[in-house]
Every structure is written in structure tokens, then in C-alpha cells.
């Protein structure tokens, strides 16, 4: 089943073109890696799918389960099952992680026509997932990401991903700022969420992450479009030869 269908997408910021005629099709159960040099438009793509304001879509479509995603508010997209793991998760002082998780989860459940979770149900669920990600109770009591290390922030993203049970996860450079141990924990958390109903788009610079999260497909982005697609072996090729060959191709 096709989850995400992007056709001839064109996106600009301040009348500068960032994405130029991008196509991408993602089915349930698949893991797609998007690689590419800095400035190729990878993060912009993730922001546009999630609905971040400030981008102008000048052409093309993004369909999610056949519905026009671009017509939806960011919170509606979240409720439909789109989840963006941020490259730079923000710090929110004064809002405890626990309160934030609960508010967000209940907002999504409400939008999906489901009732709020009871406190014991919610706590059980959070503690279960938090435990598997080495997230301590103390972290859950602190302000969202306040005083968290880079690795802790990324683990907190994965925690949310597990709690909200999205059908499409976009991981924007989830490996940036992680040491090898943190990377293992994060990757194993993500792998645990792979399922036939769920798709993932893994955005990264480096092949390294793809040792841990093995993709079904690899796409190379350059200058705002996908210039080459292939199997996981393409990532190895990139590691060996670099992105330079695609810069000219685009």
C-alpha cells in the first residue's frame, strides 16, 4: 500500500528554489534512506512533509494515503500518522517531558477519535518505552530536552515515535551528534518500530547510520531532486566515491 506519494515537488524559500521537481514513492513497510550533500534539500523535504511554515510550495503534490498533505495543518498531519524526528529537537523550559508527552498523545488520540489514556495506562506505556531507551524518570520530570545531551535529545525523539505510533516516520539526521553507543541505542529503538504497516524515511549524510538501520531503498538527492535511486548497496558506493559525481549530474 502506498503511504506517501510525492510528485514533481517544487519548494522555495524567499524566492530561492530549494526543491526542484522531486518525486518519491514510499510504501508501507519500507525503509527509504535519503542521502546527499549539504544543501541538497534533504531537511527542507522533511520540513515540508511535516508542514513547517516558511516554505513556499510552488508546484507538485504530496499525497499521504491518497490525501493532500499540503492542505493539512502540522497537527492534522501528526494525527494522520506523520512523525518528524527533528535534527535539532528544541528545548521547552517549564513544560515537563511527562506533561508534554501526555498533552501531545491525547491531542493525537482525540483527533483520531479515540479517548484519552488513563493516567496508569499512560504511565505504564511511557515507562515501558523509556526503559528500553535508557531514559530515566528524572529526565521525564525535567523540562522538554532542557539540559539533555545530544544523545538524550535524540532518544527523546525516538521515545515520542514509539508512543505516538505514527505510520510514517521521517528521521532527519537522527545520527548527528551521537557517539557510537548512543547511535546503537537510538538505532535499536528505531529498528524495534519497523513493521509492515509503518514506513520510514531516514535522512543522513553518512553510510554509518545505515549499518544500523538497513534501508530497503537508497535515494541520492542533489540540488533539490532525486538523482539516483537504488538498493542499500548504493549507500556503499556513495561511501566509496562521494557525492561529487552527482553534483554535476544534477
Amino acid at each position: 500500500m502506498t503511504l506517501l506519494e510525492i510528485q514533481d515537488l517544487n519548494v522555495g524559500v524567499d524566492s530561492r528554489e530549494i526543491i526542484r521537481g522531486l518525486d518519491l514513492m514510499v510504501n508501507a513497510g519500507e525503509v527509504h534512506a535519503i542521502m546527499g550533500p549539504n544543501g541538497s534539500g534533504k531537511s527542507t523535504l522533511s520540513h515540508v512533509i511535516a508542514g513547517k511554515p516558511g516554505y513556499e510550495v510552488t508546484g507538485g503534490h504530496i499525497l499521504f494515503r491518497g490525501e493532500d498533505l499540503l492542505e493539512m495543518e502540522p497537527n492534522e498531519r501528526a494525527a494522520k500518522g506523520v512523525f518528524l524526528a527533528f535534527q535539532y529537537p528544541v528545548e521547552i523550559p517549564g513544560v515537563t517531558t511527562m506533561n508534554f508527552l501526555r498533552t501531545a498523545l491525547n491531542a493525537q488520540r482525540k483527533a483520531r477519535g479515540r479517548g484519552e489514556l488513563s493516567t496508569p495506562e499512560f504511565l505504564k506505556k511511557v515507562r515501558e518505552v523509556a526503559g528500553s531507551l535508557n531514559i530515566t524518570r528524572d529526565m521525564l520530570k525535567r523540562g522538554v530536552n532542557v539540559g539533555f545531551s545530544g544523545g538524550e535529545k535524540k532518544r527523546n525523539e525516538v521515545l515520542q515515535m514509539a508512543l505516538f505510533e505514527p505510520s510514517l516516520c521521517i528521521l532527519d539526521e537522527i545520527d548527528s551528534g551521537l557517539d557510537i553507543d548512543a547511535l546503537r541505542i537510538v538505532a535499536s529503538g528505531i529498528n524495534g518500530l519497523r513493521s509492515p504497516e509503518r514506513a520510514m524515511i531516514v535522512i543522513t549524510h553518512y553510510q554509518r547510520l545505515l549499518h544500523y538501520i538497513v534501508p530497503d531503498y537508497v535515494h541520492v538527492m542533489s540540488k533539490g531532486r532525486v538523482v539516483k535511486s537504488g538498493s542499500k548497496e548504493l549507500a556503499l558506493e556513495l561511501e566509496a566515491c562521494g557525492y561529487a559525481q552527482f553534483e554535476t549530474a544534477a
Binding site: K52, P74, A104, Q108
Partner: peptide, 12 residues
């Protein structure tokens, strides 16, 4: 911050 919360399901 507002976008982060909206991306997690909260209305604006």
C-alpha cells in the same frame, strides 16, 4: 517551539 509542538499534534 510552536512548530515542534504542532508537529506533535497540538493545534497552534
Amino acid at each position: 517551539l510552536v512548530f515542534y509542538l504542532r508537529a506533535r499534534g497540538l493545534s497552534e
